[in-house]
Structures are given as structure tokens and as C-alpha cells.
């Protein structure tokens, strides 16, 4: 921590906190930390849902958030793209930095944030439109009108989401005619088309059968070279299979956060061990 101290001889143009921020940002860049959560708390009314969370997420890695239901893992995930704003009476403290920028501020550009931080939900939620229109949605609301470019990007995203072989010929068909697994991959393609940096996945396989789940997990693995993925799951095997890092949340507190291997083989905290060995949860 010493090297983060203030050197009054370097510059007088920056105030002390700004200077500390800059140094911290440089450190974060060096370590490829794309998301930094600092003393983040969230309250539903007066009830705390997240208590002073501190964690950093590495770029181009898969980070899993595990924990029993109601521990706040989805709430934490939805804090990264400010989806909690849709719920009335939510209050937050602390901050979340993405690419060094605090996203918890009042004047944060939510449109820009959500285009940078995409999301796949628990239940497949394609719009009742054609497959093509679903994928093109994110581009069209951003004003893209060039048909050739739309076609090209839609195909690219569907390929990335491993859905092109199945859906390439039926783009005009309603998305609701697809199977659950296909719908979830369509939702992934829909999120990918606007080229976010981070993809949040909120228990994306909880409504899927084992084969579709395996496909989705393979997909997550292949996507991490281009994207940073944060996945919430209640399925510990899934976390162990796909994630590089795992965070364990309990009653709104971050109990332990480490490399997945470490968490599952040699956890530091007794509560983590109890959870992953199935003693509760």
C-alpha cells in the first residue's frame, strides 16, 4: 500500500482523492481488473441485502457467484448493470467501478452502461418477434438501419452463440417456436450483438435440461477469450466446471472469493466448506 501514498512533488493539479484514484486505476489496469466493487452495500427499504462487499473481477475470465437462495447473489449481479434501479426503494452505499469509472453515480449513462454490460436472464425471455428481430433488437434501438450490416452482425452473433446451424434457415420464424435451450442461446446472441465487454448471467441454465446446459457451459467457456463473464449459479458443479474464480455469498456477505480450484478443494472459511460439502444451502 505504501506505493499508493501521496507524493506532493509529483503534481499539485490533482486533489488527493483524485490522485489516489488514478494510481488505483493504473494498478487495476495492470492486473486486468475490469470490475471493482468497493464497500458496496444495498438495502431494500431498511433491509440490507448486500453488506460491504469488496471484490474485483478479472478481464477475460469467468467469475461465478454462488450461495444459497436469498443470499444476494442475483442482487449483486444486477448491481453491475444497475438493473436494481427498476425496483422501488433500493438504496446503495459504496461504489462499483467498471473500467475505472464509478457506475453508481446519479448521472451515470445507463444506456451506455448496459451496452457495455450485457445480461442473460434466469428464464429465457426472447421477445415475441422473429428470431432475426430478437437478435437485431439491440442494434435497431441504437439506430442501426443498414440492412447488410444488420444481417452480418446478426449472423455473427448467432454463430457466436452456437445457434446459427439450427436457426440460420428459420430467421423469420417466431422466437417462441424454439426450444428452451435454443431460446436461451438466442438471448445470449441478442446480448452479444451489441458487443458488450462484460456478460452477466443470472442462473442461465436453471430452466434448461442437462444437454442444453452442457451446450451453454461449453459456450461460456469459449466466449471468455472475447468477453468477461460473471455467472450467478446455485449449482456448485456448474461453478466448478465453468468458472476461473468463485465468490461465495452468504446472507448478503462475501464470505470467500478466490480461484475456483482453491474454493472447491481448500476453502479458508469454515462456512464455505460447509456449503460446498452440502451441509446447508
Amino acid at each position: 500500500m505504501e506505493d499508493k501514498g501521496i507524493n506532493p512533488w509529483v503534481s499539485t493539479e490533482y486533489s488527493q482523492p483524485e490522485y489516489v484514484r488514478m494510481i488505483e486505476n493504473i494498478h487495476a489496469l495492470n492486473e486486468n481488473l475490469i470490475v471493482r466493487v468497493e464497500d458496496f452495500s444495498l438495502f431494500y427499504g431498511d433491509k440490507p441485502a448486500l453488506k460491504r462487499i469488496n471484490l474485483s473481477i478479472k478481464k477475460n475470465r469467468v467469475t461465478a457467484i454462488i450461495g444459497p437462495s436469498g443470499c444476494g447473489k442475483s442482487t449483486l449481479l444486477r448491481a453491475f448493470n444497475r438493473m436494481n434501479d427498476l425496483i422501488p426503494n433500493v438504496r446503495i452505499e459504496g461504489r462499483i467501478l467498471i473500467d475505472g469509472e464509478d457506475i453508481c453515480k446519479k448521472d451515470t449513462d445507463l444506456v451506455a452502461l448496459r451496452r457495455k454490460v450485457g445480461m442473460v436472464f434466469q428464464k429465457p425471455n426472447p421477445f415475441p418477434m422473429s428470431i432475426y428481430e430478437n437478435v437485431a433488437f439491440g442494434l435497431k434501438i441504437a439506430g442501426e438501419k443498414d440492412r447488410a450490416r444488420l444481417d452480418q452482425l446478426v449472423e455473427k452473433s448467432l454463430r457466436q452463440a452456437a445457434l446459427w446451424d439450427e436457426a440460420g434457415d428459420i430467421l423469420d420464424r417466431s422466437a417462441l417456436t424454439l426450444s428452451g435451450g435454443q431460446q436461451q442461446r438466442l438471448c445470449l446472441a441478442r446480448a452479444l450483438v451489441i458487443e458488450p465487454e462484460i456478460i452477466l448471467m443470472d442462473e442461465p441454465a436453471s430452466a434448461l435440461d442437462p444437454i442444453s446446459t452442457a451446450k451453454l457451459e461449453a459456450l461460456i467457456y469459449s466466449l471468455k477469450k472475447d468477453y468477461t463473464i460473471v455467472i450467478v449459479t446455485h449449482n456448485m458443479q456448474q461453478a466448478a466446471r465453468v468458472a476461473d474464480y468463485t465468490a461465495f455469498l452468504l446472507l448478503g456477505e462475501l464470505v470467500e472469493y478466490d480461484e475456483t480450484r482453491k474454493i472447491f478443494t481448500n476453502p479458508t472459511d469454515k462456512r464455505t466448506e460447509d456449503y460446498i460439502t452440502g451441509r446447508f444451502g
Binding site: 438493473m83 445507463l110 444506456v111 451496452r115 450485457g118 436472464f121 441478442r190 451489441i194
Partner: peptide
């Protein structure tokens, strides 16, 4: 879910 999906894609 459809509203959330739209917001998550950066819709106003």
C-alpha cells in the same frame, strides 16, 4: 421479463 430484456440491451 420482456421489459427487463429491453432495458438490459440499453433501451431507454
Amino acid at each position: 421479463e420482456h421489459r427487463e430484456a429491453a432495458f438490459a440491451l440499453g433501451a431507454t
